[in-house]
């Protein structure tokens, strides 16, 4: 009898714990977003998103965050474009060109997993040594290169996941019609997986735009909008990080505004990704 009661109590207790931790997760997300909104909204104004910092900005005078917003967009876009030139062929290599060489494909996946686990600060340090070695100064270009290496495994993984699901029969019918590897890769697989590729790109874009550690060494920081690849650039996460460290309340509140803008960008990306992947499942050939 006692054992039975104990069993029921244990059952209930752990059920309660599981329910609580799941609810905690939802509450946590709401809590984080609400706090960022609550702190960011009051200091967010048109001036914030439309102007670059003016004189005395860092003492609480006029100006906005346009330099950081544009800088971040440039950086993430550049990195994603370079990343695409490497990640798309790589994921196609695993699923079309070398699909019969299981050992090689597994080796690539293994190396990618390894790269995926390396923290962004190590990529930052690596990018910095490369930069010194090549003799370029801290610049948009150096940042783009570092971030593109850092997001490479993320992109390939997302694309590979989708390309794995392309039915083998589809590949084989294309080959049986006399297509070359390249034609199958780009005209069949890449087209079939297009929404998936876009998802991977957006995911990587989100990662690239939000990361600090990789760009801390390589982009520098400036109040101007970069006009060439060799210019230094500000980024949103760096703006959050630097301004939060300021003792002046006005400047701190701008860090919250920057954090809010960054969060909104990330949320937007997440919504678009979700929408695309839903459409993908409707249109793809099963």
């Amino acid at each position: 009898m006692m054992r039975r009661i104990f069993k029921i109590i244990e059952e209930r207790f752990f059920y309660g714990l599981m329910l609580a931790s799941t609810a905690f997760l939802v509450a946590l997300l709401l809590f984080i977003v609400l706090i960022i909104l609550y702190k960011g909204l009051p200091s967010l104004s048109w001036e914030m998103v439309s102007q670059t910092p003016k004189g005395g900005y860092y003492f609480g005078r006029e100006g906005g965050l346009l330099n950081a917003i544009i800088g971040s967009l440039y950086l993430a876009t550049g990195a994603v474009v370079i990343g695409l030139f490497i990640s798309l062929p790589l994921s196609l290599a695993m699923n079309v060109y070398f699909r019969n060489n299981k050992k090689l494909v597994n080796a690539i996946r293994f190396v990618l997993d390894l790269l995926w686990g390396i923290p962004s600060i190590v990529y930052g340090a690596f990018g910095f040594t490369i930069m010194i070695y090549l003799g370029i100064k801290t610049s948009l270009l150096a940042g783009i290169i570092t971030v593109s290496i850092f997001i490479l495994p993320i992109m390939v993984r997302a694309m590979d996941e989708i390309m794995k699901q392309v039915p083998l029969t589809l590949l084989e019918s294309a080959f049986s019609l006399g297509s070359t590897n390249t034609e199958v890769a780009f005209k069949v697989v890449a087209r079939q997986c297009f929404p998936g590729i876009v998802t991977g790109v957006l995911l990587a874009f989100g990662r690239g735009i939000g990361d600090v550690a990789a760009v801390l060494f390589t982009t520098g920081y400036t109040d101007n909008i970069p006009t060439s690849l060799m210019d230094q650039t500000a980024t949103l996460p760096l703006a959050v990080f630097f301004q939060l460290g300021s003792p002046i309340p006005e400047v701190q509140s701008r860090a919250y505004a920057a954090a809010l803008i960054l969060t909104v960008i990330i949320l937007l990306i997440s919504v678009v990704t979700r929408f695309l992947s839903r459409r993908y499942y409707k249109t793809s050939i099963k």
Partner: peptide
């Protein structure tokens, strides 16, 4: 829950820092 987890995973670390 899927989007909840995905968004939590996507929030940049600097935002977690501010929070």
């Amino acid at each position: 829950m899927r989007p909840v987890i995905d968004i939590l995973a996507g929030i940049p670390s600097v935002i977690y820092g501010v929070w």
